[in-house]
């Protein structure tokens, strides 16, 4: 047979090709943090930054324009809570620090844990919403029948592009009772 067909080369090439396969498999997983980072920087998917931002420099308030923020709250199915914001719509100057209170009430007879996840539309605005204090991405335990007032302190980055005049911040509250009971860290808040 034609063993002379440069047989020795095969194993080297197979090793390389197999290495590329492993590499591409790893690349698939590497895309997950890459995507998250990319979204954080560009607001690609409308998720806000989960780390607390430094306070606003009061001098940088841009009083020449106003940005309208709409607040929206929703409870996911399976979580018998009431969850609302004190205001639905707010106009702020970029750079101006504002606090909005959110209220959550556990309407059940058992202790539960919830967690609110934020989403901003348009996503382009997300990187410019800087929260100095927030309850989002955190487990929020509530005893039976209890109510919690959760403040969110934020300011809009004065660098926000001029064409964004309105954006919506939506919070979806999820039931995390089981996950919390199992001690699972569900969202990484370290940053």
């Amino acid at each position: 047979m034609s063993e002379q067909h440069s047989k020795p080369d095969n194993s080297k090439m197979i090793t390389r090709l197999l290495a590329s396969v492993v590499l591409m498999f790893a690349f698939g997983f590497a895309l997950v943090p890459l995507y998250e980072k990319f979204c954080e920087v560009t607001g690609f998917n409308g998720r806000t930054n989960n780390s607390a931002a430094a306070g606003s420099d009061g001098n940088l308030v841009d009083t020449t324009r106003l940005v309208t923020i709409e607040f929206h709250t929703r409870v996911n199915r399976g979580l018998p809570w009431e969850f609302s914001s004190e205001v639905r719509r707010l106009q702020v100057h970029p750079g101006e620090t504002t606090t909005v209170n959110f209220t959550a009430t556990n309407r059940t007879g058992r202790d539960m844990t919830g967690q609110a996840l934020p989403s901003v539309a348009p996503g382009e605005a997300a990187p410019y919403l800087l929260k100095t204090e927030c309850f989002c991405f955190q487990n929020q335990p509530l005893a039976a029948g209890d109510t919690a007032v959760m403040p969110m302190q934020f300011y809009v980055d004065p660098d926000i592009p001029n064409h964004i005049r309105t954006f919506t911040l939506s919070y979806m509250m999820y039931d995390m009772t089981e996950a919390a009971a199992q001690g699972r860290v569900v969202v990484d808040t370290s940053e």
């Binding site: 199915r77 399976g78 979580l79 018998p80 059940t108 999820y174 039931d175």
Partner: peptide, 17 residues
Amino acid sequence: IDIVANGVQGTAMQAYR
């Protein structure tokens, strides 16, 4: 009552309250 009123997270069963 809980299931019908509040639904079940992660399933098609929604909250009807």
